[in-house]
Design a binder for these strands. Sequence first.
DNA 1: TATATACCCGACTAAAATAGTCAAGTTTTT
DNA 2: AAAAACTTGACTATTTTAGTCGGGTATATA
Lengths: 140, 140
Amino acid sequence: MKLNTKSRYAVMALADMAVFSCDNAVSLRDISLRQGISLLYLEQIFLKLKKNNIVKSVRGINGGYILVKSPKELKISDILLALDQKVKTIGCKKDSKKSCNGKSTKCITHNFWDELDIHINSFFESKKLIDLLKHREARL
Amino acid sequence: MKLNTKSRYAVMALADMAVFSCDNAVSLRDISLRQGISLLYLEQIFLKLKKNNIVKSVRGINGGYILVKSPKELKISDILLALDQKVKTIGCKKDSKKSCNGKSTKCITHNFWDELDIHINSFFESKKLIDLLKHREARL
DNA sequence: TATATACCCGACTAAAATAGTCAAGTTTTT
DNA sequence: AAAAACTTGACTATTTTAGTCGGGTATATA
């Protein structure tokens, strides 16, 4: 059970932006160098972040990306959502014909998985980008 | 981000046992029929459950498996552990040479992933097998 | 206005993980 | 003896993941 790299990189990259942007755009090249993430992969990730209005882009020389919301307001759940990274611990949904046919005990565990999803999602909902940076400041 | 089927089936199967065992062993064949899980796959799962002392086996006719602990005592985390289903949301551990080289901001997000792991694991620690059955009783 | 920098975007692919199957047993009860 | 049921390792098809590739487009600055 793990998060995929796209989600992790997205969070890392946005955290990087929060640290390094001084009101100007941050280029993917810089993020790539600092965070050790492939530039091509970052492009793919930022495409989604842009489409979902997490960042906006500035083209041309000295271009890059800018956070739409402040790190204080940007929820981690927003980021994961932008990458279609739903926290869905099971494939078996109540309304799915395929895996849950309502037979006897078959779906005893349904409620449990639902609870789990809620538990995890509420964590992501409760955390803002700025929360990730706090530890860092302590180290400086 | 999702749990694999092995873990889910393990929990389903053990919940099934909790419901249907009347002190005697439950055969995989019965579980397979009731829960719609491939018998061969169940065998693979129960091998691990047995090795990790979650169930014990009774061979021969009328054989099957028996829960080692009562559903009241068996934690979900025990089950997941038996299937090596660690909740490890990232591949990048502090002590890993590969993905975390300590460069500047590289691992700003570390603490966050650690917190997430703890958050999820504590959920699995807090739930016992019997907790899954409660909803069911309400429906009968 | 040339050009370098940086975003834009769909298609492709190698490798790993997943979800299972198969074959060939062993043990025990009736 | 025969049947039910556990035991075990090896094998495999499919899917997902984690990227790369190629060919764009926009724009600031010299």
